[in-house]
Structures are given as C-alpha cells and as structure tokens.
Simulated scan of single mutants.
Amino acid sequence: MQPLRSTGPGEPDRPLPIAQVSTGMTVVDAAGDEVGTVTAVEMPGTEVRPDVPEEQAVRLMAEGYLRAGGTGLLATAWYAGGSQVADVTTTAEEGVVTLTADKHQLHRAG
C-alpha cells in the first residue's frame, strides 16, 4: 500500500510523490540540473537510517527519502526528503524525479 496525501475535504487521497519513485530513475533538481540516479527509496516511517547526521536522519526517516548519486569512484551521493519530491514522470523507457530543491539544499551522504 502506498502512503497517501489528503487532497482536501471530499476529494480522494493521492499517493505521495515519494511512493512513485523507484531505483534507476533520473533525479533533477529545481533548476533542472541532473543530480544523479535513484539508488534507494524509503517510505515515510522507515527504520532504515540514512548516512547523514542524526538530526537530518530523524527527519528523513519520518518523511521518507530517496538516495541519488552519480557513477564512479568519486561520485557524491545525496539524500532528498519525501517533501522535496515535486513530481515523478515515467515513460516506458525511463522515469524522472523532479525535486523542489536545488542540489545545494540536499543532504550529502557521508
């Protein structure tokens, strides 16, 4: 079952955008710059702790998060909270996650 977001009185609930994210999707920030590829997704309330400082980890675990990163030995991994997912679009070949934040507002892994 996907986590739901209330759309208002008398309107049906919709799945949270984070619930539509899957590994392998391309992630772009609010400016349209590519952040990387989704390597992990956790739904709100997860007990899987991301590799960030404790205060950030608690918030990410509560709202759900995705981990995205580039490729290669020196690639940087980033975490975006579920509330930072603006839109998820999919086609038969690919998926794109658009964030509400720019790359510098994301949580850097490590």
Rank of each mutant, 00 (worst) to 15 (best):
A86G: 03
M43V: 00
A92I: 15
D102E: 13
E55L: 14
L66N: 00
M43N: 08
G70W: 13
A80M: 00
A68R: 03
V97L: 06
A101C: 08
G45N: 15
R49S: 14
R59Y: 09
G72T: 03
G70M: 07
V97G: 06
L16T: 05
S22N: 07
W78V: 12
E94H: 13
G36A: 10
V48M: 11
D87S: 13
A19M: 04
T100W: 11
L99W: 07
T90L: 10
V97F: 08
V28R: 01
T100D: 06
G95L: 11
E63D: 15
A75D: 02
E63K: 08
V96Q: 09
P17Q: 06
A92E: 15
R67I: 05
T91S: 15
R59Q: 13
L99C: 11
Q84D: 14
T76V: 13
V27W: 02
E54H: 13
G64C: 05
G36C: 10
A101Y: 07
G24V: 01
G81L: 05
E93M: 13
P53K: 01
Q84G: 13
L73V: 07
G70S: 09
V38M: 06
A75C: 12
Y65G: 04
T100G: 12
T100P: 09
T23M: 00
Q84W: 07
T76Q: 09
T76L: 04
V41L: 05
V88I: 12
Q56W: 07
D29P: 10
